[in-house]
Design a protein around this nucleic acid. Structure first.
Length: 127
DNA sequence: GTTCTAACA
DNA sequence: TGTTAGAA
């Protein structure tokens, strides 16, 4: 199934097709690229070529926009998602690190106030 | 005909 | 974000 993933990552769509598929303007698509939200390939004469994954990403961005989220917010969302992905890797890796982390947290809990932190969590289990 | 960059009545 | 100008 890694085969299809590679195919979805193949950038073969010109911006014109992406516009039709996403209902976004070329201006917006290029702007989102500036914001590092999508990173299309550049083929021949400096033309952007998008992959199916890029299409999904853009459609997702469009949804966030419809929900009234601005560029900063969207960037924050992806930053948070990336961090979560990194955390997953860290957990998958060395379990001696897991012990170290648990150890650190233990020290923190034992030495801090009984403040029950209930901060503003904005989970996005979208997919 | 399409896309690119840069800039703004 | 729209739109436009000039080049590729």
């Amino acid at each position: 199934m890694a085969e299809k993933e590679l195919q979805r990552s193949k950038s073969v769509l010109p911006i014109g097709t992406v516009m039709k598929l996403t209902d976004l303007t070329a201006r917006q698509i290029r702007y989102y690229e500036e914001q590092q939200l999508v990173i299309p390939e550049r083929t021949d004469g400096n033309r952007r070529m998008y992959s199916l994954n890029d299409i999904d990403k853009l459609l997702e961005i469009k949804d966030y926009l419809d929900d009234g989220i601005n560029m900063a917010g969207i960037k924050a969302i992806y930053a948070q998602q990336k961090k979560r992905a990194d955390d997953l890797q860290n957990e998958t890796l060395t379990d001696s690190d897991v012990r170290r982390i648990l150890h650190d947290e233990f020290l923190n809990i034992s030495g801090l106030e009984p403040n029950s932190g209930a901060p503003l969590h904005s989970q996005r289990p979208l997919k």
